[in-house]
Every structure is written in structure tokens, then in C-alpha cells.
């Protein structure tokens, strides 16, 4: 038993561009999101009905998380934050299907998302204060704190990505161990806990921490 991504085959010859199972499940979840979004948003009307209610419900939940922390800019950040929420959510919940590895149980996925959030955070900070003003804010309140502030800023994407990765991989290891000990019936509540509950909470937290980082950079 070995946690983490398994290399299935190599694109372009030996040892170049390995294709892992988490990468394939990541593509599958992107396709699921695309089909779902297309299905939910066909035939939009003023008076919502049926599937349009579902789409509006999802968007409203995400909007209500953004608006209190970034006042007045909810609609501006909604596409970015909603992408993270929905991709991480689908990536976490797809692991409920037995035998499917979570795309978020791969450090490459989570670190990629965290680096995108990191770049957006820096951009928003510079947009708010100007480039020089933002760089100067690292040397506050005294100049001695400059290295500590820079390390603290660089630690954000690391803790952001390792939190999601560790939660998903930890749950996956426990479920694999239980499957070896008792393969029938007992893993079902564990799938409900680690797959659905922890997956949904961690997707919510990944998005909320991204909002919190952006709002800290802007204040």
C-alpha cells in the first residue's frame, strides 16, 4: 500500500510527462463540472424553476461567504472563488466512489491551487496599495520584522496546500486500512464521514481561507 498518486503510463516515451491516476480523475471531475454547469444553466428564465434553482442556490451560498469578508466586491471575486469551491468540492466528493482516488489527495493539485491563490493575493495587495506601498507594508511596524513577515507570507501557500492534502490522504489511508481488515459493510459509514463530511468541510475551508488571505492582503 502506498498513498499518493500512482503512475499509470508515460506520455512521450520513457520518464517524460508521467500520467497519474489523480490527474485522470482530475480531468474527469473537470468534465463532470463542465457538463453539470452546461446542464444547469440551459434555458435560464426570470422566474427560476427546477434546475435553475439548484444553480442559483450554489452561487448564493458561495456569494454569502465572500461578501462579508470582501465588502462590495462579492461579484468581482465570485468567478475565481466559485471555481476553487466547486473544483475542490467535486474533487473531494468524487472519492466516495470506491476505487477512485481523489485528485485533491495529490500535492501537485493542492499546491497548484494554493499558488494560484498566492499570486492573486499578491496582485490584490499591490492593486490596493501600489507596488511600493505593498512591499513597504512587510516592514511594519519595525524593520526587524521584515524577514519574519516574508517567511510568514511564503508559508501561506504551503500550509494552505498541505492542509487539504493531509486531510484527504489521512482519510484515504484510514479507509484503505479498514478495507484490508473488514471489506464489507463497515467502510460505508467511514466513506460517509471521510468522503462526504470531511470532503465538504475541507472544500468550504479551502475556499474560505483563500478569501481570508485576499481580504488580509487588502486590509
Amino acid at each position: 500500500m502506498n498513498p499518493g498518486p500512482k503512475i499509470l503510463f508515460y506520455l512521450f516515451g520513457k520518464d517524460f510527462l508521467p500520467i497519474t491516476d489523480t490527474l485522470i480523475v482530475g480531468w474527469v471531475s473537470v468534465i463532470i463540472i463542465l457538463i453539470g454547469a452546461k446542464y444547469l444553466t440551459t434555458s435560464l428564465t426570470i422566474r427560476p424553476n427546477g434546475k435553475q434553482n439548484v444553480a442559483e442556490f450554489i452561487i448564493e451560498i458561495i456569494y454569502k461567504q465572500i461578501e462579508p469578508m470582501l465588502p462590495g466586491e462579492g461579484w468581482r471575486f465570485l468567478p475565481f472563488i466559485a471555481t476553487i469551491f466547486i473544483y475542490v468540492g467535486v474533487g473531494n466528493l468524487i472519492g466516495v466512489v470506491p476505487g477512485v482516488t481523489n485528485p485533491t489527495g495529490d500535492l501537485n493539485t493542492t499546491l497548484g491551487l494554493a499558488l494560484v491563490v498566492f499570486v492573486v493575493t499578491q496582485y490584490e495587495g499591490m492593486r490596493e496599495y501600489g507596488v511600493w506601498g505593498y512591499i513597504k507594508s512587510f516592514a511594519e511596524p519595525v524593520i526587524f520584522l521584515l524577514p519574519i513577515n516574508i517567511i510568514g507570507e511564503l508559508a501561506k501557500p504551503i500550509s494552505h496546500s498541505f492542509r487539504l492534502f493531509g486531510n484527504i490522504v489521512g482519510g484515504g489511508i484510514i479507509i484503505t486500512l479498514i478495507y484490508q481488515a473488514a471489506p464489507f459493510l463497515i467502510p460505508v459509514p467511514l466513506h460517509a464521514w471521510f468522503g462526504i463530511f470531511v470532503g465538504a468541510i475541507q472544500a468550504l475551508i479551502f475556499g474560505m481561507v483563500a478569501i481570508a488571505y485576499i481580504s488580509v492582503a487588502k486590509s
Binding site: 492542509r163 493531509g166 468541510i201 475551508i205 481561507v209
Partner: peptide
């Protein structure tokens, strides 16, 4: 939940 997620980081580091 946000505070607990941040508090959880150290435990996740040790798990990794």
C-alpha cells in the same frame, strides 16, 4: 470552522 482549520495545520504537518 475557519479557526479550527487554521489550528489544525500543525497536526496536518505532523501527519505528513
Amino acid at each position: 470552522l475557519l479557526g479550527q482549520a487554521v489550528a489544525e495545520s500543525t497536526g496536518i504537518y505532523s501527519l505528513v
